[in-house]
């Protein structure tokens, strides 16, 4: 195993710069929202974090599919990495949403379809790790995890749909409809999405490398013990 590849170092630097730039745009470029004020600025990173969370789970499901087709351990490593990142960013999404909801909706928590769906997703992927830790044989663990990553991800749109339909029948006091974005807001928002996406790739790469290094150490240890 070599030390950190140059491309990854460049990617690290790029994501750091992009996030810094996104911060600058959020606070310096995007105009202050008239009714919500400062707290609206959470929105840019809140949606970006949720986007990365979703992306992570999507990558995991795809990696799971490829693992089942090919059986190469590297896809299992990618799958775990993507789920971990997805979990972390979804949590950031939930917390930042809460921070926004407190002054705007006057509550930390609401049974908004998006919020509940993300929470159910968190539960699915926590269950994912419980499944992994319950199975000893590495091949079987990887296969089962891949199956669950796929099944879990497929259930997400149906969960969202059912919760939204559930709400739409009862009168909804608080709607989460998007406020109109001014062009500058939209630009800032798109830039944040991009910055977070680059950050995602960089983190995923790091986490996959970590997984491969762990496997490598395990192999060396096994060789020593034999």
């Amino acid at each position: 195993m070599k030390s950190t590849p140059t491309a990854l170092k460049i990617l690290d630097a790029a994501s750091a710069l992009l996030i810094a730039a996104a911060l600058a745009l959020v606070f310096g470029y995007a105009p202050m929202e008239r009714t919500m004020g400062l707290v609206q600025k959470v929105f840019y990173f809140h949606v970006s974090a949720n986007w990365v969370g979703m992306l992570g789970f999507l990558v995991a499901a795809v990696a799971g599919g490829i693992y089942l087709a090919k059986g190469t351990p590297r896809w299992d490593v990618i799958e775990v990495a993507a789920v971990e990142i997805g979990l972390a960013f979804s949590l950031i999404g939930i917390v930042s949403g809460s921070i926004w909801a407190r002054p705007i909706w006057n509550t930390w928590w609401t049974w908004d379809p998006r919020l509940v769906t993300v929470t159910v997703m968190e539960l699915i992927y926590i269950a994912y790790f419980m499944l992994r830790s319950g199975i000893e044989d590495p091949d079987r663990r990887a296969r089962y995890a891949a199956v669950y990553a796929i099944v879990g991800f497929l259930s997400v749109p149906l969960t969202f749909l059912s919760i939204r339909m559930f709400r739409s029948i009862h009168p909804v006091v608080i709607t989460s409809s998007q406020a109109q974005l001014s062009p500058k807001m939209l630009q800032t928002f798109m830039f944040s999405l991009f910055a977070f996406s680059v950050l995602f790739v960089s983190l995923l790469w790091h986490r996959v490398r970590l997984g491969q290094l762990t496997a490598h150490i395990e192999r060396l240890r096994l060789k020593l013990s034999e």
Partner: peptide, 9 residues
Amino acid sequence: ILLFPVALP
């Protein structure tokens, strides 16, 4: 734990 979140719909 595996089943309930997936069977929520």
